[in-house]
Computed example of a mutant assay.
Amino acid sequence: MTGTFTTRTVDVTTGSAETMHDLTNACSAFLREVAHGRDGLLNVFTSYATSGLAIIETGAGSDNDLLAALRGILPADDRRRELHGGPGPGDDHMLPALVPPHATLPVVGGELELGTSQSVVLVTADRGGAAGRVRLSFLG
C-alpha cells in the first residue's frame, strides 16, 4: 500500500513578547481532515527564524518555566550585534538551535499520539512582534 502525503500551512500571530502558541488543536483538526483513521507521521515545521516547536505540558507552569529558562540563556540585551554593526535580534535568532524548528509525531488511528498532558507549541523569542507560518504535513 502506498502512503499519501498531505501538507498545509497555518498562520500564527505571535505578538510582541516571547510566547508559546498551542498548535495541538490545529494539528488535530488537520489530521481529522486528512488522516481518515490511518496511522502515519505528522511533521510540524516553522520557517520563522526566531521560533521553534516543543512538545510540553501547558497551563501547569512548564510553559512559563521554559520561557524563563530561555530568557536566562538568551537574555534580551544588546550583547549580540548584527553583521552590519547595529544591535540586533541575535538572541532571538539563536532560539531554533535550542528549540528545534520541527517535530515529527506519531499518528495512530488518525489521531495525534501525545501523552495525557502534552501539547504541541510554537515557541517564539521574537520581542518585536510578528506573524509566523507553521507547516503541517501528514504521511500515512
Rank of each mutant, 00 (worst) to 15 (best):
G132Q: 15
G85P: 09
R32P: 10
R32N: 11
A103E: 00
C27G: 09
V34M: 09
P75S: 02
P101D: 03
R127I: 06
D65Q: 05
T46Q: 00
T104Q: 00
P106D: 05
L70W: 06
H21C: 12
M1R: 04
A131T: 11
T46I: 03
Y48I: 00
T14L: 02
D126V: 01
S16N: 04
L83I: 14
T2S: 08
T14C: 10
T6L: 08
L53P: 11
L105V: 00
V34N: 05
I73E: 13
G85I: 01
F45K: 02
D39N: 13
Q118H: 07
I56T: 11
D92M: 03
L53A: 10
L70K: 10
P100C: 00
A131I: 00
S28F: 06
E111W: 06
L122S: 15
T9C: 06
A29E: 15
T7I: 08
L139F: 12
Q118S: 12
V134H: 13
H102G: 10
H93L: 00
R81E: 11
G52M: 10
H93C: 07
N64I: 03
T24K: 05
T14M: 02
L105P: 09
A69T: 12
R38V: 15
G88T: 09
S119H: 13
G59W: 04
G88H: 14
T58W: 02
G129M: 04
R38N: 14
G59Y: 02
L83A: 11
L95P: 12
V12K: 07
D91H: 12
V99K: 04
S137A: 15
L42P: 13
